[in-house]
Amino acid sequence: MSDRAFVAWQKLALGCAILEPGSSAKLKTGDWKSLAPKLDEEKCIKCGKCFTYCPEFCYSEDKNGFFRADLSYCKGCGICANECPTEAISMGKEEK
């Protein structure tokens, strides 16, 4: 029998609870997208709509005021690109 489990049942916390706050950040959920957002800094007006609308909370503001998506959590839904008022975000193949 191959071992398909993460951990022995005796080692699970009571009721399968998660005891470490924020540990879900360790789980990279963005490995199944087919398209990724790409920012055109020329067009961006730094309004933050992409940050507000992204359902995966991928965006954060960098020191220059641009909003950058952390693609390791991006599912490629394109909401950010749709909501951007200046079409500064385009959806395309992820650049590795």
């Binding site: 398909r4 489990a5 993460f6 022995a8 049942w9 699970l12 009721g15 399968c16 609870a17």
Partner: peptide, 13 residues
């Protein structure tokens, strides 16, 4: 409490 139990955890839970 009561998080998702992915297939790698569900049976142990």
């Amino acid at each position: 409490m009561g998080p998702v139990g992915v297939p790698e955890v569900y049976m142990e839970a």
